[in-house]
Design a protein around this nucleic acid. Sequence first.
DNA 1: GCCGCGGTTATGTATATACATATTGAAACG
DNA 2: CGTTTCAATATGTATATACATAACCGCGGC
Lengths: 248, 248
Amino acid sequence: MSMIQTMDVDVGEPLSLHQRILSDISERILSGAWAPGHRIPFEHELTAEYKCSRMTVNKALSQLAKAGLIERRRRSGSFVRRPQSQAAVLEIHDIRIEVEALGLPYHYERVARHKRRSGAEDRTLLELDSNGPVLALECRHFAGKRPFAHEQRLINLAAVAEAANEEFFAVAPGPWLIARVPWSAAEHRIRAVAADRHIAAALDIEAGAACLVVERRTWSAEHPVTHVRFTYAAESHTLVARFTPSQG
Amino acid sequence: MSMIQTMDVDVGEPLSLHQRILSDISERILSGAWAPGHRIPFEHELTAEYKCSRMTVNKALSQLAKAGLIERRRRSGSFVRRPQSQAAVLEIHDIRIEVEALGLPYHYERVARHKRRSGAEDRTLLELDSNGPVLALECRHFAGKRPFAHEQRLINLAAVAEAANEEFFAVAPGPWLIARVPWSAAEHRIRAVAADRHIAAALDIEAGAACLVVERRTWSAEHPVTHVRFTYAAESHTLVARFTPSQG
DNA sequence: GCCGCGGTTATGTATATACATATTGAAACG
DNA sequence: CGTTTCAATATGTATATACATAACCGCGGC
């Protein structure tokens, strides 16, 4: 089929006009040429500069505003905002995908499963206020033959009754839940810990070795759904987060 | 003239039409009513449903596409995307602010400062290709009397020449850079490590103890600016990230 | 001087229209 | 039968226009 690839000399992609306006302006802001507080040209001035309609300029400026680079004030104009708090997009993938991205065969193992009324600790982790039933799961995720991650999970059966009938032998609770429960909010906590004996055995490492712990609490429509704690051996995992101030 | 206002009783905020379309659709996607792969109505169908122009529908759908909820294909229509990798907004504050948020007095100490031509390791860390000059810094951040974080930093002097004249006795390199260099991209790596002797001494912990390492690389307009590695004792720090799916 | 009123201004939203572009499916052709 | 061509279709981008809305400004009346 078509070997007709862009063999043209022109390397830059053909940006649409509003994209060009947008990137022109964001460049000037990010380079510092237009400092925070600076009033950027009015729409009608940009209209003249780029010889285009106001709608086109407006599209670009609206996107800059949504991205947080500028602030728009009626009657006054648009102004460069001061740099907002640093934030990064932290990507947390499904473990299977992480493992497979490493080129290793993925394998999942359910270690334990208990259904019980929630105790004090469960209620703290899930932020429950009643002692409703929960499902406690312990699993291991393997990369090749080595344990890659240890998973301790609580599922709020009041929110996901269906889970009570699932053994989780074949399917890991993460993908199972994602497929069933639309989540609306999540909270992550990331820290380093020394492996206790239980974790050390599960991950086949020395007790006291450094581990990365990622805890996630998930809500769906105000109801706590699940709390999960993943523990990774120090060598096996690095979280990567990238951030570029959005260009719209 | 026209006092003809909608003097309706309705208390809810007056959403603009394209916002209403957008939130209607994203609600159906997030609730699971429209599963991944589902084809959402064509623009002309929504035009009929909402009795508005195609531009208005287009605005809503474009934003949904940019937010990653749907994928648009010419001639085929728009489709619900399968939930992309979970992403969370990871807040990474200035260490002074972190410490002060704990109610502890903050104190900063510069341990070492070396100006040198970049070696192989420096070039790897900064992603430099020439052996230009760099400034290597080592610092400690205290919460009260205890070391809170250890900082190892490289600054690319080709990008920030001004840094060569700064001793960093009084001001930490982080705030100093933020005040001067507009950064345009950053990359974070988060992992757990066992403290080596050097780190153990700096943080006043046992060698081999678990530590959380946050490394950040920063670019400004394509130029590498700095690489920094923060090391926290396991007990002293937890990163927290929250996520709520955006409604556009 | 102070207050209110209306006019001016810049942005916010929406419309109808036009043409470009990618993609698909079917017709035409060798 | 396979390949090429073409038209239909949905989205992508841009325009000119219109009116709404918020904020500011100055003018005039008290």
